[in-house]
Simulated assay, not measured.
Amino acid sequence: MNINQFDQPVGEALPHWKPVARPPCAPIPGQHCLLLPLSVDHTEPLFQAFMQAPDDRDWTWLSAERPASLPQMQRWIADKVADAALVAFTVCSLNHQPCGVVCFASIEPEHGTIEIGHVTWSPLMQRSVMGSEAIFLLLQQAFSLGYRRVAWRCDSTNVASRRAAERLGFRFEGRFRQVMTRKQRNRDTDWLSIIDSEWPEVRRALSAWLSAGNFTAGGQQTRPLSACFADVNPPDANATIPER
């Protein structure tokens, strides 16, 4: 515990801390996908990608409804591009097919905190490694810029979103009750994060899982991500196993 001159507990000293840079809106290449700056030029392919879904269930927890026409899709994209609080990306396949959207949000360079949000995947990304790598690429960029914390938040009823974040190494922090209303419903928000001291371990596990050698020519994983996390953080062999 750190104690100040008044004999009070205080946080860890950061004598060398300096504000970090805002993430650039520039392409980020990966092994399985490509992040490109979101553009209204992506309107038609993104509209076609989202319309692959038979219904609107993927939009239940999002602030917007699924755009039902090209003009609506263009406005949805234009709003994100124009929002100075976001750094917005289109998730593309390696052949540059737009398949989804993801953003940096709640960017606070002075504190070194940032959030990954506005995650909107189309059916073209389901059962593929693209979504996981897209998040990995954003994590990698944030921590390489010197950010101390990358957050993830989701509706507490969106169990799939929380599980996806935890699978990628985010740790659950807590629940903010009645934090907002959305689509005429109450929303409690679950918060998760990865901090800089945890990132090296998370990076090793994700890098090992995403490596080309871990996937077959048909895109099937050889080893699950959980096994890669176990490799970098093996269980304590001397730990006492509780009785059941």
Score class of each variant (00 low, 15 high):
Val40Arg: 15
Ile114Glu: 10
Phe89Trp: 02
His16Tyr: 09
Asp79Gly: 11
Gln126Val: 02
Cys228Gly: 06
Ala212Gly: 04
Ser156Asn: 14
Gly30Tyr: 09
Cys33Trp: 11
Ala165Leu: 05
Asn186Val: 04
Asp188Tyr: 10
Pro23Leu: 07
Phe172Tyr: 15
Leu210His: 10
Ser197Cys: 09
Glu115Ile: 03
Ala230Asp: 14
Ala78Thr: 00
Val81Met: 07
Asp58Ala: 15
Val129Pro: 03
Arg203Met: 00
Leu225Ser: 06
Glu173Asp: 12
Cys25Ile: 03
Ala13Arg: 11
Trp76Ala: 07
Gly100Val: 11
Ser193His: 03
Cys154Lys: 05
Leu210Lys: 12
Cys25Leu: 15
Arg66Tyr: 04
Ile194Cys: 10
Asn214Tyr: 09
Ser161Gly: 05
Gln97Leu: 14
Leu36Glu: 14
Gly169Tyr: 01
Asn238Thr: 13
Arg163Thr: 05
Leu138Thr: 01
Pro123His: 12
Asp83Val: 12
Asn95Thr: 11
Thr216Asn: 13
Arg167Pro: 06
Leu38Cys: 06
Val179Glu: 12
Arg148Trp: 07
Trp121Pro: 06
Thr60Glu: 14
Leu192Ala: 02
Cys154Pro: 05
Trp199Glu: 13
Gln141Ala: 11
Phe6Glu: 14
Ile116Pro: 09
Arg204Ala: 15
Leu62Gly: 00
Phe170His: 01
Asn95Trp: 01
Val101Thr: 14
